[in-house]
Each structure stands twice: as structure tokens, then as C-alpha cells.
Design a protein around this nucleic acid. Structure first.
Lengths: 138, 138
DNA sequence: AGCTATTAGTTGAAAATGTAACTAACAAGG
DNA sequence: CCTTGTTAGTTACATTTTCAACTAATAGCT
């Protein structure tokens, strides 16, 4: 009985991850009807600029079918648009539309606010430590 | 462009959680055909002893429908058994069967091995820090 | 050029999840 | 006891996710 679930790292990380994204999830869901993958696609485009589906998938570690469906939905709702790449017509460059940019900026502001709030309990140093440790695990 | 997804805590936590549970997930899936919720139910029973579905849900922060289905599947595969509570016949005490215990002990050993390996990159102190910080977030 | 292998992205079917509505048992107040 | 409200757990249905098979385009080899 010496094993503690509360100490088991994958479990701990999962709990923390769920807790920490729950409230933010509500924002992009309620406000833009987005799912997690869709929000992630929007953020990647907002941060890194235009990308192909493959790029996004690689950077975000998301499977291509999920990306494909997320992009479809985002396109249908006019948050992104696509243009075939001349050089390689299998792939398409995905870009935020004007409306997509607006949503991105809005959600970005929320994300920052949200994170500030989340981290308000920790000291600067602790935050840095936490991030560094998590990054090493990744 | 100052915002970094790699620094955004919910994102970081999610990545770390996914990474850290991927390989372990493979073990309980391949070896016992279990899903995450099922594995969690088994661990809760193994660690805390017999519990009702409600108890498990509360401790593990899992919705009752998920618990209900997980328990059904575990019962069908003879990892757990159920007995109606005499005092309150709405609820049932769930217990690991002999076979369930065997699976539990096996997975427990794997979990410990897995975590040792996962943490081998970090110092004792760092591990303690990480756990403490995560627990505060939760 | 022609053949095979790989790659980007899509699609369909099966499995899993979320949500809400439901049943059965209990509880509390009259 | 009866009514009303609550609780444990299940079920049905819609939405998501996963997995494998697929199409279309390209790359590489001969």
C-alpha cells in the first residue's frame, strides 16, 4: 500500500493538465464553438503564421486526421482559408482569415489573463522552475 | 508574437501529461485491454480497497457514466465484482477479483518501474519540487 | 519515360466520450 | 404512509476520436 496515486507523475500531470485547461476550454467553446484541436490550430497559425496541415500536426503533436477535421470545421466557419501549394499540390497552406485573426487575438488575451490568474499563487521563480521541469519531461 | 505556446502552462501540462502517459498506456492496453479509466478504477481499488462507484468517481475526478461503463467492462472481463450494499441498495461495493489483483500488482510494478525511468533524468529534489508545484495547481 | 515507394490529406466505420434523461432507492417533512 | 426532493447508477443519443483504408501528387530509381 506504499504506492500513492497522488505521487504518480503521469497521474499528477494529467490531473493538473485537466484542471488547468477546464476553465479555458469553456471560453473558446462558448465563445467560438471550438474544440481543443481547433483552438490549437488557430493558435499555431496566429503565432507562427501560415502553415500546412502537416506542419501544424508536427509542431502540435496532433494526428493528421484530427487536424484535417479541425481545419475543415474552421474553414466552414470562416476562421481559416486554404490555398494549394503550387510546388506540391498535395498540400495546402492554411491561413487565418480576418475573422480568424480577431478570434485569435481575443483568445490570446484570454489565455494570457487566464494564465496570469493560474500562476498568481506561485512565485516567479516557481513558475520558471515548473516550466523548465515540464519542458525537460517533454 | 511575444506569446509562446511552449510557455503557456495549460499547453505545457497537456504535452507533458500526454508524453508521460503514452508509453504506460501502451502497457495496460496491450496487456489487459484496458482504457485509462479502467486502469484508474483498478488502481483505486488496489490502493484503497473496496469502494463504490461514487467513491471512485469522487476520488479520481471522473464522471459517473465513465465509471459506470468502466466497471461494466471490468466486470465482464472478471477483473472486478460487485455486491449490493445492504444498507443502501442503490449503490454497490466494487472489489477486485483474484484476477483483478494479479493485474493490479503487475501494473503497479510496471508503474513504479515506469516512473523511476521517467524521473531518472531529474534529481530527487527536482522531483519533489515538481510534485509539490503540481499539487498546488491541482 | 515507367515503375515503385512515399507523402499530404481525406474518408468511413468502430470505439469512446459527453450530456441529458431516466430508473430505482432512499430521505425528510407533513 | 404519502408527497416531494435527492442520490447512485444506467441508458440513449449525439459528438469526438481512433484506426485503417483510401486518393492524389510527388520522389526516386532504373
Amino acid at each position: 500500500m506504499s504506492f500513492s496515486l497522488q505521487q504518480f507523475l503521469p497521474y499528477l500531470l494529467n490531473q493538473a493538465a485537466e484542471q488547468s485547461s477546464l476553465a479555458f476550454q469553456k471560453i473558446y467553446k462558448d465563445r467560438y464553438g471550438m474544440l481543443r484541436t481547433e483552438w490549437r490550430v488557430v493558435f499555431h497559425l496566429g503565432i507562427y503564421g501560415d502553415l500546412t496541415a502537416k506542419d501544424i500536426g508536427e509542431r502540435a503533436n496532433i494526428h493528421k486526421t484530427k487536424i484535417s477535421r479541425a481545419v475543415h470545421k474552421l474553414e466552414k466557419r470562416r476562421f481559416v482559408s486554404r490555398v494549394k501549394v503550387a510546388k506540391d499540390r498535395r498540400s495546402e497552406i492554411i491561413s487565418l482569415t480576418a475573422q480568424g485573426h480577431i478570434a485569435y487575438r481575443d483568445l490570446l488575451a484570454e489565455a494570457e489573463k487566464y494564465e496570469r490568474n493560474l500562476l498568481s499563487e506561485l512565485s516567479q521563480q516557481e513558475v520558471a522552475q515548473l516550466r523548465a521541469l515540464l519542458q525537460r519531461l517533454i
